[in-house]
Design a protein around this nucleic acid. Structure first.
Lengths: 160, 160
DNA sequence: TTGACTGCAAATGTTTTGCATGCCG
DNA sequence: CGGCATGCAAAACATTTGCAGTCAA
């Protein structure tokens, strides 16, 4: 739906990071891992492990959830995916390769997630942290509310 | 650190909110609920259900975890407690009655949690939301990093 | 060949729930 | 009394892990 036809650099970058990480850690590139990782980056968005598993199983019915969990944990460790936690009980992952930091607007009615970034907020965050003697290494910020459509009571389109 | 010795108004406010909510929902005031709620507000901080359960059991050994879960869910629903999720697998609750909104600085080494509020950040958040057509009803922001002591490598004092 | 990877199922840890009993109102 | 609340244990989830077989390097 969105025009992301120019992420070849990022994909290359991602592959490099991944290859380097796997080499350094003695990890192997397997059919399942490739499938999971490719699917994850191809789908985009904020996937729960189960959602990702479903996409993956559509292509290879024998991949187990455990492998998806293990693979996403790896991606997270090597910095290519970030684990997020938006209130429903599940951990969601989002692609991180070559992307700037960003935060989220979450519609509490239809579940839409919009990403944004705002340098002025980041600057203020740093200032606050400094005032309290903290050195900040990461942060997360989530704004919950109603998106434009839900404010007007439009029917919820459910998820894909 | 913080001078919050004047929360008597807030406590009264809390009881009112609670009483009204319980009346409206046909809820009963029981020994267990009172004990759990009083303990929760007395201890303060960001308690996991298990931590709270331990405090409660010290006073009445027969209270079950289930009741603590049920009670905290109630407090959360009536707005007197907020559920938070700081990365470890557990949901933590913090008192919300009569308190201004605030965010958190979390030390990733010793676990210290510092609360802060910053109106300019809130203002910017609203602006961002508006730009994306959202009406924000709540938000959370967490800054992760090292607190002053941990930056200097001081020994971790563990939790209480 | 070898050791990492996988699938499966069992194990974990957290939170929820069904049910019979208990207690507030 | 009647119905919500409680305790207990089982159930429900999300996630992890032990193990034996499989596969990449």
């Amino acid at each position: 739906m969105q025009g992301h036809d120019h992420d070849h650099d990022e994909i290359k970058d991602k592959d490099e990071v991944l290859a380097r990480y796997m080499a350094q850690h003695g990890l192997k590139s397997t059919r399942q891992r490739s499938l999971i990782i490719d699917t994850f980056f191809a789908v985009g968005g904020h996937l729960s492990v189960e959602e990702l598993w479903n996409k993956v199983r559509a292509q290879d019915a024998k991949v187990s959830v455990a492998t998806v969990y293990r693979t996403m944990k790896l991606l997270n460790e090597c910095g290519l995916a970030h684990a997020r936690n938006f209130g429903d009980g599940q951990t969601r992952y989002e692609a991180a390769a070559g992307r700037d930091h960003h935060d989220h607007l979450i519609c509490t009615r239809c579940g839409t997630i919009v990403e944004f970034e705002n340098d002025r907020i980041e600057t203020l965050q740093d200032a606050v942290a400094r005032k309290h003697g903290f050195t900040v290494t990461s942060h997360k910020m989530e704004l919950y509310g109603l998106c434009r459509d839900c404010q007007r009571g439009l029917p919820v389109a459910s998820e894909a």
